[in-house]
Computed example of a mutant assay.
Amino acid sequence: MNPLWSYLLTAVGVTGLLLAGRMKRTGWLVGLGAQFLWAAYAAATQQYGFLISSFIYGYVYATNYLTWRRAHQRNETPA
């Protein structure tokens, strides 16, 4: 497996967190999208434990995005 995967997964994940920390909607969506990359990585390397984590992280990113969206529609900042 090409080590470029490690750098790509790290870059995408950190970018999502930075954007989310700056209250940008795209941060949660980038993080959610990164989970598809993690799932591909898990399948390619046959490290299926990463599939479990990608589903869990995906759920957390989706839930946080929905919370952010609801608060943003009410012009509130989520706690």
Score class of each variant (00 low, 15 high):
residue 1 M to H: 14
residue 1 M to K: 14
residue 2 N to K: 11
residue 2 N to D: 15
residue 3 P to A: 10
residue 3 P to R: 14
residue 4 L to T: 15
residue 5 W to N: 08
residue 5 W to R: 11
residue 6 S to R: 13
residue 6 S to W: 05
residue 7 Y to D: 01
residue 8 L to T: 09
residue 8 L to E: 00
residue 9 L to M: 11
residue 9 L to T: 10
residue 9 L to G: 08
residue 9 L to C: 09
residue 10 T to V: 10
residue 10 T to K: 09
residue 10 T to G: 04
residue 11 A to R: 12
residue 11 A to M: 12
residue 12 V to W: 07
residue 12 V to M: 12
residue 13 G to A: 13
residue 14 V to N: 09
residue 14 V to R: 15
residue 15 T to I: 07
residue 15 T to P: 08
residue 16 G to C: 05
residue 16 G to Y: 04
residue 17 L to Y: 07
residue 17 L to H: 10
residue 18 L to K: 11
residue 19 L to C: 07
residue 19 L to P: 08
residue 20 A to S: 08
residue 21 G to T: 06
residue 22 R to D: 11
residue 22 R to A: 14
residue 22 R to K: 09
residue 23 M to K: 14
residue 23 M to H: 09
residue 23 M to D: 11
residue 24 K to Y: 03
residue 24 K to D: 03
residue 25 R to F: 00
residue 25 R to G: 09
residue 25 R to K: 12
residue 25 R to P: 06
residue 26 T to I: 04
residue 27 G to D: 01
residue 27 G to F: 03
residue 28 W to K: 00
residue 28 W to M: 00
residue 29 L to H: 03
residue 30 V to F: 00
residue 30 V to S: 07
residue 30 V to G: 02
residue 31 G to E: 03
residue 31 G to Y: 06
residue 32 L to C: 02
residue 32 L to R: 03
residue 33 G to C: 08
residue 33 G to V: 08
residue 34 A to L: 03
residue 36 F to D: 01
residue 37 L to T: 05
residue 37 L to Q: 00
residue 37 L to H: 07
residue 38 W to N: 06
residue 38 W to C: 02
residue 39 A to Y: 01
residue 40 A to W: 04
residue 41 Y to R: 04
residue 42 A to Y: 04
residue 43 A to W: 14
residue 43 A to L: 12
residue 44 A to E: 03
residue 44 A to N: 04
residue 45 T to E: 01
residue 46 Q to W: 04
residue 46 Q to C: 08
residue 47 Q to T: 06
residue 48 Y to F: 14
residue 48 Y to Q: 02
residue 48 Y to M: 00
residue 49 G to C: 02
residue 49 G to R: 11
residue 49 G to N: 13
residue 50 F to N: 02
residue 50 F to V: 05
residue 50 F to S: 03
residue 51 L to D: 05
residue 52 I to L: 15
residue 52 I to K: 13
residue 52 I to W: 10
residue 52 I to C: 09
residue 52 I to D: 05
residue 53 S to W: 03
residue 53 S to L: 10
residue 54 S to Y: 07
residue 55 F to M: 14
residue 55 F to L: 15
residue 55 F to K: 04
residue 56 I to A: 05
residue 56 I to F: 01
residue 56 I to Q: 05
residue 57 Y to S: 03
residue 57 Y to M: 11
residue 57 Y to H: 06
residue 58 G to L: 01
residue 59 Y to H: 10
residue 60 V to W: 10
residue 60 V to G: 01
residue 61 Y to I: 00
residue 61 Y to L: 04
residue 62 A to I: 09
residue 62 A to S: 15
residue 63 T to S: 15
residue 64 N to S: 15
residue 65 Y to E: 07
residue 66 L to R: 14
residue 66 L to P: 02
residue 67 T to F: 06
residue 67 T to E: 14
residue 67 T to S: 12
residue 67 T to Y: 06
residue 68 W to K: 09
residue 69 R to I: 01
residue 69 R to S: 02
residue 69 R to V: 00
residue 69 R to Q: 09
residue 69 R to G: 00
residue 70 R to S: 05
residue 70 R to T: 08
residue 71 A to H: 06
residue 71 A to N: 08
residue 72 H to C: 01
residue 72 H to T: 04
residue 73 Q to A: 15
residue 73 Q to E: 12
residue 73 Q to H: 14
residue 73 Q to Y: 13
residue 73 Q to W: 12
residue 74 R to F: 07
residue 76 E to D: 11
residue 77 T to Y: 13
residue 78 P to Q: 11
residue 78 P to D: 13
